[in-house]
Each structure stands twice: as C-alpha cells, then as structure tokens.
Amino acid sequence: MVERTAQIISNERDTDAYFRLVLRAPEIARATQPGQFLHLRIPPLREALLRRPFSIFQANGETVSVLYKTIGKGTDALARMGAGEELSAIGPLGHGFTVPARGGETPLLVAGGYGMAAMYLLAERSPQKGMVFVGGRRRVDILCEAEFRKLGWEVRATTEDGSYGEKGMVTQSLLAELKRDSGKRKLFACGPTAMLKAVAKIADEFKVPAEISMDEHMCCGVGVCLTCVIPVKTASGWEYQRTCTEGPVFDSREVMWEVAR
C-alpha cells in the first residue's frame, strides 16, 4: 500500500453513465491482487473532502484502471477530469479474492453492474477457467463482457428489462446452472448488497463456498475511521469488521446477514 500522485492516461465513457479511468501508477499496478481497491482524492472537489474508493479493474505493467458509474458529486467530478491531469491514489488496499488453484473448484463469478470490473483480475489470474453471470437493469449496465470472453470465459448476461441476454435477475441464471451441476463449484460475487445476500443464500442451499466483495461507504480506506464496517460472525456472536481492511472480500458464511443493511 502506497500513496502516489497518479497521472490520468485516459478517462472515457464506456456506456451510459459508466466511465473507464486509466492511471499511471506503476507501484500500485505491480502490487495489485484481484479484488483490491484504490482510494482516490478527486482534486476538483473542494468542499467534499473525502476520498472515494474504487475496485481495481485492470492492472497492466505501469497502469491501473477502474470502471466507475457517475452516481454523485465525487464521480461526477472525476468524470470531468481528463488525460494528463493528476490525482492522489492510495492503493492497492483491502483483502481481495482467493485466486482459484489449478484443478480445484470451478469458479463461477456473479456480478451486478460495475461489480463486474472488480472480478476481471480474478478471471485473468485464475489458472482455471469458469463462467461469469452478469446482471443489470438494462443493456447498458452489462459491462466489460468482451474482456471476459477474450480470456476464454463463458459469459451469461441477464437484464431486468430483457433488453439484453436473458430477462430476469442474475441469481436466476446462477440457480439454473447450480441445479444442472453444483459439484466442485465455488462462487465469487460483487454487486449490490441485496444481490450478495441472495448469492450467499444460494451458496448455503447448494453447499458451495462463496467469496463476496462488499461495497460500503468508506472514509479513510486504511482501517482507522470504522465507517465501512459490516457485521461478521465470531465465536461468541458477531462484531463489526472493516470492509477496507478485513474485506472487501469476505467468506459469505461469515457475514451476519440478518444484521447487515
């Protein structure tokens, strides 16, 4: 984990409200593990002081990239920044996904919206190819499908409005696959909390392990402010653990879902 001034190589619209930001940050790029994140200070935000966390999408040589959606003043300001501008990046942060072992369980990736980006490095570095289940509200919410296909992974897309892929929820197509064959499978998921909760329930039913990446509001990103906590089971009950430090990736069985928001 380092703090570096990173130059923007490119920051272009992907689809609709989604953007791809590529930063020159060699030390961060080299150290990045699948599922980790960057904490960015966005200079044009003068009165909004806090950094914003973003899952790392790709890490190639000297660059890291993120795929983000404009959802508020932080991401709106970021979307207005251009190549050549600089921002402060802390990263790579957090405890990421366990990269599947050769000959181990077949990885099934479950992504909602920009959660897809957080799973790319996992697919890239997995010696074992698997399947990706990606869901979104509309066609424009299905992101970086081509990148996963290029890695040789099968992608099954689902949209709620039926404008692309199968109509319905991403968990329905996951369910169909597990009903067909749930032997020696492991789930990895990133997306809205409701989706993660549904994935955890499915993992329980089929008795397959699941690693889920939680998306929580963050402040410091390094474990001191205790903003991003989620309830996690312990020997004597449960405690709040930090998404930025113990997570963002947790074993789905450890999360105290009945308390989680």
């Binding site: 009165e47 909004a48 002081l49 806090l50 929580e216 509001h217 903003t227 709040y240 928001r261």
Partner: peptide, 21 residues
Amino acid sequence: GNPTPRTAEVTSGMLNAIGLQ
C-alpha cells in the same frame, strides 16, 4: 460500536457516530 451508516460527508467536513468501537 453503532450501526451503520456511521459517517456522512457534509460541506467542508463530516459527521460521525462511530460509537467508540
């Protein structure tokens, strides 16, 4: 500590209610 959300960004500052976890 307190339930979440525990912090909120406001103009030139922030609110917190961590609850001394």
